[in-house]
Design a protein around this nucleic acid. Sequence first.
DNA 1: GTAGGGTTAG
Length: 389
Amino acid sequence: MKIPNPISLHLLTISFKIHKNHFSTAAAAASTNTNLTTLFNKYFDKTDVYSWNSLIAELARGGDSCESLRAFSWMRKLDIKPNRSTFPCAIKSCSALFDLNSGEQTHQQALVFGFESDLFVSSALIDMYSKCGKLSNARVLFDEIPQRNIVTWTSLITGYVKNDDAHEALMVFKEFLFEKSKGNGEEVGTSVDSVAMVSVLSACARVSNKAVSEGVHGVAIKVGLDKVMGVENTLLDAYAKCGEVSLSRKVFDEMAEKDVVSWNSMIAVYAQNGLSTDAFELVHMMGALRVGMCLHDQVLKMGYVNNVIVATSIIDMYCKCGQAEMARNAFDGMKEKNVRSWTAMIAGYGMHGFAREALDVFYKMIWAGLVEFTRMWSLQRFLRGNCLN
DNA sequence: GTAGGGTTAG
């Protein structure tokens, strides 16, 4: 029996992923993909291009680029005609392997089947050539595209950064902004997005010029991407590479959410600038957060989360560990709040420069009729002193 | 139906 596609293949891969979680060794992971291919053989219609696309894509996503390319050539041997969705994944596997030979061959095939002008295909090709060190080929392809989108621009910008020419990367971004300002109205797919922003900021980090970094930061604010975690992480690094450690810390403190990249970056900034005390302080805070999260977990399991005092302590803990977002989630989840809970949340926001959010909670607190006048005035003073200047 | 680009440290 052959399973219809592609939902079943997705179900199959999901079950593999669950299965895969039971193993931790590389060998087990490798055999999982081999099984994927084996089961594909057994259950899927090998005359159907969609089956092949799904297989090639799943293998590429799972990081098995070699298998993905083997699937592509196997498909070609069976004389299955590829479509526009076949190429991006196959090309992506070539760039992941830095395999210029296969990349050129796949490019050739894309030309034969007339998909070279497809934006998905050309983005993947630009990326492949620049990852294989053939930036001039990437540039030629880019210049030939009549209507570019943000992904093609980003592919080229990243290409220059990866080939140690951050200046040219910034020039391309400037060109992008210029092209964008020329066009009347919004073209589809040409707005700068967070991936583009990250790429450009990584170029800023390399040229290490404060004014340039601030300029790009300004663009991020203008388009409303400055509060995206990935953007903040890269911005933090860019300021650090300009020697602006305190600006890095400001970005770090004002992050509502921090991931392992944020923590590692900030600690590394301190370490590399000889500020070991600050570095240790952050390591300590990171450890405290870890313990705090474990305790939060226990509190949830034991059902103590509905206790106002416990829940308020959790909010306070998250705020002091720089996790405003987690604090807010805990705060919003509280069944009942007392003045102390509100105060903890407001103070937490105030501490990290979230003036707007702090005031918002403050007004809601007044609205809820929970405020005592003595606290109200002290809070106002607190807010003025901490974040309204 | 399936598809493309990104960040830290070592």
